[in-house]
Design a protein around this nucleic acid. Structure first.
Lengths: 335, 335
DNA sequence: CTGTTAGCGCTTTCAT
DNA sequence: ATGAAAGCGCTAACAG
């Protein structure tokens, strides 16, 4: 049905190799023949079969990305960065959205078993040691985003510094009773995923640096989500000595905190200051003070690292992107 | 390096075909040989090459999705539905995010030229007539989501009914001066993309049905976005006779309206009622009254239709999913 | 039931 | 500079 390279060769009266060479812009073909071949291609409406080419080359020009929770705005923003960079180089992006542990494991296993992608991007997901081994054995290049793992290239941020930034901002505002709301301390889905934990670490360090007491009752953990954070915040605010400020490990969770404040008719920032993390799109709308991290860029940069790997370079070291405090209404000076 | 089907055949002492049959769970192989082959496969750590299989089969087990604006929560939700359904059937999802007209055209052209996907899903994007022809000629099955086009299968909603629903709700609440904010009336990116226009049509019909005057000054159009809608809403609210209610063609735009109300210190819903469209995740948080449409399901259903096409069935007719009014704080009874 | 053979469409030697 | 030929790893007839 569709014309093949063979048809082109026959009609143009040249050999198979020559057509292939024209296809690949090889300099080893005279201008005259090239013109003729090109003409025949146009005449026959010839389309090179990508799939045959992939097969012959042993490459797919495709990169797979596994990410938990498409729905999180921060993840979507990273994906945008990935897609833009990949597409600009003619690569395709196939995505996997994992919302349960079994799927996480299965996706990773599939990615290794199949040769349907030349490389793998892992968002907020670190391979377990055994998975890392399998990846290496399959010669499947991987770049991590938003996590780190021994010996694997990745792009992340300094979450400890970010947590420190948020907390010392609140301290500078005069707050003394500052609480933290973050993800569960261990989560099988995001194995080894330390961003919430590190942000808490930064929070603790900032408190310590200001000689403020660490109150375990002020540290709450729950599933990443507005609703869960709202419940936790309500608990905090019902404490005999409630916090005057809450640092949430993500903007989504900060939104839950704002809801809780609204539930209890606590004016923000007067009665409660709130700081989030990520600076997702909606943060500006909410007037939410937050720690901004370069989400789009993290995806773009990860793709660049993957290309390096694909070109045969040695695994580059993990990179850190900068964070920045963005002060908005929810943490204005009020004391 | 990696074991091939040939190695397995040799070691197991069987023919190539037998191994292939085992691979494909053909019943035409005795339990005994199957066991033996399976054992050798395990021993050799054999992984069938998907890419070779794709080549031989002339299929990619991949579906491409082109969508404008990843960032829109409604689009993300549809993608979730697509991914879940596709992955459940062993298909891969490759995504293209188009944010400019040129990219839109290029992606579509590429999708037709390449054979890197077995089918195509178009979100909020209708092919131009010439593109539709090219699609057909390339035998590339397409399903539309959130749009309609002559003779192409798709899943959408009744936007006119949705607009009517929203508007008559406001009318029932006692509103007489109701404005509309929607997307530009023509947009080269989303060619033929009529959802905003149809919602306005429903709005107009509801007004007419209630014998309310159609005031052209109450119909505003701007780029889909919070900021743009905020500007438009501010204009509306500065009119000599400002509307007491605004129906926005999307929740995102409704958020802009809420911002404008806040800017002008207009209490919602007392001084201004607001209704959006889509019922994205954040709508509940905002207490936004809106018209809910099944976003996840639209993606899932589109994949099912595509599978039908892929299995050689005749193009099914376009489908409509139901819409539903969700009343929340921004449109409580107040007059 | 099973082995053999002929491609799928392209890239890539290797001669010429 | 160009043609011929040998695969890439698998599927799918085709004989047995």
């Amino acid at each position: 049905m569709a014309a093949t390279i063979r048809d082109v060769a026959r009609v143009a009266g040249v050999g198979l190799g020559t057509v292939s060479r024209v296809l690949n812009n090889s300099p080893l073909v005279s201008a005259a023949t090239r013109q003729r071949v090109l003409a025949v291609m146009a005449e026959l409406r010839y389309n090179p079969s990508q799939i045959a080419r992939n097969f012959a080359l042993g490459k797919t020009l495709t990169v797979a990305t596994i990410a938990p929770f498409f729905t999180r705005p921060s993840v979507v923003e990273r994906l945008r960065g990935i897609e833009a960079t990949l597409t600009a180089s003619g690569y395709h992006l196939v995505v996997f959205n994992v919302e349960a542990v079994e799927r996480r494991d299965e996706c990773l296993r599939e990615a290794v078993r199949n040769d349907r992608a030349d490389g793998l991007l892992l968002v907020s997901l670190a391979p377990r040691p055994d998975e890392a081994v399998a990846l290496r054995e399959a010669h499947l290049p991987v770049v991590l985003i938003d996590t780190c793992a021994e010996g694997l290239p990745g792009v992340s941020i300094d979450d400890v510094a970010g947590g420190h930034l948020a907390t010392s901002h609140l301290i500078a505002l005069g707050h003394r009773r500052i609480a933290f709301i973050g993800d569960p301390e261990t989560d099988p889905l995001t194995f080894n995923f330390t961003s919430s934990r590190d942000r808490m670490l930064g929070y603790q360090q900032a408190l310590a640096a200001a000689k403020l007491p660490l109150n375990p009752a002020y540290e709450r953990h729950g599933l990443h989500g507005r609703y869960e954070a709202r419940v936790l915040a309500r608990e905090l605010l019902h404490l005999p000595e409630p916090p005057t400020a809450i640092f949430a490990a993500s903007d989504t969770q900060a939104m839950g905190v704002l809801e809780a404040a609204r539930d209890l008719h606590l004016p923000v920032p007067e009665a409660l200051a709130v700081v989030g993390f990520d600076d997702i799109d909606i943060a500006e709308y909410l007037g939410l003070t937050t720690v901004r991290q370069p989400l789009f860029e993290s995806g773009a940069r990860a793709v660049e690292l993957l290309f390096l790997l694909l070109s045969g370079a040695a695994p580059p070291p993990a990179e850190r992107l900068p964070v920045e405090l963005v002060v908005r209404r929810t943490s204005m000076k009020n004391r």
